[in-house]
Design a protein around this nucleic acid. Structure first.
Length: 118
RNA sequence: CAGGCUGGCCGGGCGGUCGCGGUUCUGCAACGCAGAACCGAGGAAAGUCCGCACUCCAUAGAGCACGGCGCCGGGUAACGCCCGGGACGGGGAAACCUGCCGGAGCAGGGCCACAGAAACAGGUCGCCGUGAGUAGAGAAUAGAGAUUAGAGAGUAGUCUUUGACUAUUCUCGACUCUCGAAUCUCUACUCUCGGUCAGAGUGAAAAGGCGGUGUAAGAGACCACCGGCGUCCGCAGCAAUGCGGGCGGCCAGGCAACCCCCGCCGGGAGCAAGGCCAAGCAGAGACAAAGUCGCCUUCGGGCGGCGGGAGGCUGCUCGUCUCCCUGGAGUCUCGGGUAGGCCGCUAGAGCGGCGCGGUAACGCGCCGCCUAGAGAGAUGAUCGCCCAGGCAGAGCGUUGGGAUGAAGCUGGUGUUGAGCCGCAAGGCGAAGCAUCCUGUGUAAACCGACUCCCCUCUGCUGGACAGAAUGCGGCUUAUAGGCUAGCCUGAGGA
RNA sequence: GUGGCUGUAGCUCAAUCGGCAGAGCACUUGACUGUGGAUCAAGGUGUUGCGGGUUCAAGCCCCGUCAGCCACC
């Protein structure tokens, strides 16, 4: 895991809450849900459905998302719950492509400042 | 060297950087963080098709039902798995691969479309026999008729006049001919009763084949040979079975991956099993019965036997267990609450060596090793170098030609054909190519072919299928590429 | 982890006890019409998901496999 456990969403109810009440932002590779929370930090949940592929492809999609979040996590505004859903082409994408996609999504969600781009 | 078959094995490596899960240790104002060390997916982890372990249900019991399996022997904890062997098929030139195998000879039911007389033994045609009828033919007879030889009688005539002859009439009439009943024989047809399956162009399949004897016609009815079946004996083998011999009777179609019968195996559920802790909620409805006896008693009651009732043991019966028999308890149904933590949870039918036994699967002994345990679910990302391999090319090399004259050059021939002409068919035709031919030419002569294999080098490329979730043994499926052992076929060389 | 269903023509579905794989829509051609539609006539629909086996014969029976779907704890 590129993201420590304390920064993760683990409860099924949390997933449903973010998925149901949060705002969504879509990209061909990723779908992002955001919901403000009372927690001090940023919590991230990852999901890869059966449409992504077999177990290896699903794991790869999650690995890519975690690795991409690794650099961007400190720059995200705290007090938000994030849910990242992998789409089918993500399993065959590269890390740089995933990072670009995730960055544009976070910028559109105004969770990150464009000037903070490193 | 090429193609193929079978078995076994591997299925990238090293380093840097950023990260993840676990264990241990250390530190900390210390129950959660930080740091360090170590460990951290597979041959299929997959599909979930079998078999076990383990846990709960009763300590896992009996019978039926239901399901599975089915040549023989062995292996194993067990198996539908594996090894070895056998019978009968299928594929291949071979190495070899592959299917199937209890019972349809007496336990029984069912099915076998179409075609065919018939799909299993009955009926049909046909063949044959008995009897009856009809028709025809034949034989012989009774009988009838005709006629002749002949016999008798009458009449007339003549004469040779007790008679003869001629004519004629009547009666009888052998033989012959014709007709011919009953009877017998034969033939044909019809019917009755019976024998029979040799034959009946079908069909996937029709009561063993062939030859003979035999018979009214036929038939394993009988005989010889062959085939198959059963059984006995001998030999080989643990056995399935094989080989050889004797005997028996030819009653025996196929399908049990149709029901079924026989034998063997299987109790049910599954780690979300199951145990503990914490938290939380709301109850409602339905329901059976029968007591009695004994012992003890602190006189409230308790224990036990018999009897009754409810329920569990995943379909039924037995058996067994729990509870109850008037308590506000039990059982059942519906509803409500909780999806948190710990254990189970990884030392095992374990892995690696060596030795021994066994054809093998496998077993035994000794030594060594510790090897993932997550829980929205950890082993990844990226960079560099290397490596197996693939593709392309070159060198060396291999091979062929060469004082019977290489290369080069000139010409020929062949080939190819830019382009041009023509409506088209077609024609002309530059440059090029050629291990060809002619001439020229000459020696440290040189030239051509091939990169399949081996050696060296360069460039490009390059790693599949796929992720543990209680564990294990199998099966099946996916899988780039490679290593290795043995074998088969073909070609070449020595 | 467990249990079950489905796969047949381009699409939606049939096929009795194993015996010549069929219906509707769609498609093609022709007729009718000035043209099209409608109508009428004719026509082809096919590896029964795949691979084996049993049987004289398999969509159906048996085994294996692949894909899709559903349900339960």
């Amino acid at each position: 895991m590129q993201v420590k456990r304390r920064f993760r969403l683990t409860r099924s109810s949390d997933f449903q809450r973010v998925r149901r009440s949060g705002k969504s932002y879509a990209h061909p590779l990723i779908v992002l849900f955001v919901l403000a929370s009372d927690a001090p930090g940023v919590r991230v949940g990852l999901a890869a459905g059966r449409t992504v592929g077999n177990a290896v492809r699903r794991n790869r999609a999650k690995h890519l998302l975690r690795a991409a979040m690794q650099e961007l996590l400190p720059k995200i505004l705290p007090g938000n719950d994030l849910l990242l859903i992998a789409r089918q082409p993500l399993a065959s994408a590269s890390l740089t492509l995933t990072q670009e996609a995730l960055f544009t999504l976070l910028r559109r969600a105004r969770l990150i400042s464009p000037t903070q781009d490193g």
